[in-house]
Every structure is written in structure tokens, then in C-alpha cells.
């Protein structure tokens, strides 16, 4: 049996996390291939429904990455995202999923190494939690995504 490789979706703000991912690439920093990046115009655009959909469609973990607090290009998008993520964690618990599968991170576009570190941190966290209970019965490592 193959080892569990978590599938993690990262909703990344274009101005910070997404740019930091780019930088991590240019710096040739390795980070786990478990992360699927979704470019967002702002972390505040991360809709609760879309985050839930990610879990429903097979993500073992999800995180939203926005600018450092006080640095949002749209002033308060990252603060709103933080509140929504906190509320969604409660909803995940009500559903029966571990709230730790969802997290909010803040970083700037120049923090390539931090981007890689977050990717590792989240991958380790989810690896320790094991596959999402919603993925029981699915084949491992990204082969069984339902449409």
C-alpha cells in the first residue's frame, strides 16, 4: 500500500502568497508537491462555499494565504478572510471534519522561503491527521477526484 500523500489546496492572494510561491520557484526552494495553488485576487475573495467544495471534492487540507496584517491591497480583505476561516473551522467541526485541516496564513510577496515553510508545515500537519474522513474508500494520492 502506498504511503498517504495529502492533497492540499492553497488559496493564494496574487499580491503576496502567489508572488511568494513564484519567488520560491526562482530561488529553487523545494516544497512538497502536495500543494495545489489557486490564484486569488485577494485572500478576502476566498468564498466559504468554495473552501467547503474543495473539501467535498477530495482535499485533505485547505489553506488561505493572504498578505501580512495591515498590508492588504484591498485594505481589509485578509482580516475578513481570517474571520471567515475561523467561522468555517467551526462549521467543519459541526460537519465532522477536524478543524485543523483548514488554516489561514499571512506572508508577503518577498517571503519565498516562508512560502515553502508553510507548504511543508501544512503537509506535515495533514499527513499526521491522515486522509480526510470524506476520502475514505477513495484510492490514495490524487487518483480519485470526483467531478
Amino acid at each position: 500500500m502506498t504511503a498517504f500523500e495529502p492533497k492540499i489546496v492553497a488559496f493564494c492572494c496574487y499580491y503576496c502568497a502567489y508572488a511568494a510561491a513564484d519567488l520560491a520557484g526562482s530561488m529553487r526552494l523545494a516544497y512538497p508537491p502536495n500543494i495545489r495553488l489557486v490564484e486569488m485576487p485577494c485572500s478576502g475573495k476566498a468564498d466559504a462555499r468554495v473552501i467547503l467544495k474543495a473539501f467535498e471534492e477530495g482535499a485533505d487540507g485547505v489553506y488561505v494565504a493572504g498578505c501580512l496584517e495591515g498590508d492588504c491591497h484591498f485594505l481589509k480583505g485578509n482580516l475578513r478572510a481570517k474571520k471567515r476561516v475561523a467561522a468555517l473551522k467551526k462549521r467543519l467541526a459541526e460537519i465532522g471534519l477536524e478543524p485543523e485541516r483548514l488554516e489561514m496564513f499571512n506572508l508577503s510577496g518577498s517571503m519565498g522561503p516562508r512560502f515553502a515553510e508553510i507548504a511543508r508545515e501544512m503537509t506535515e500537519r495533514i499527513r499526521a491527521l491522515g486522509p480526510s474522513p470524506l476520502n475514505r474508500g477513495r484510492s490514495p494520492a490524487g487518483t480519485a477526484q470526483e467531478g
Binding site: A48, L52, F55, E56, R91, I95, G96
Partner: peptide, 12 residues
Amino acid sequence: LLAASLRMKRKL
């Protein structure tokens, strides 16, 4: 949100 939550809870 409610529909997705109910679907997931039932799937579990």
C-alpha cells in the same frame, strides 16, 4: 453552505 455541509455530514 448548508447544502454542502449536509452532504458532507451525510457522506461521513
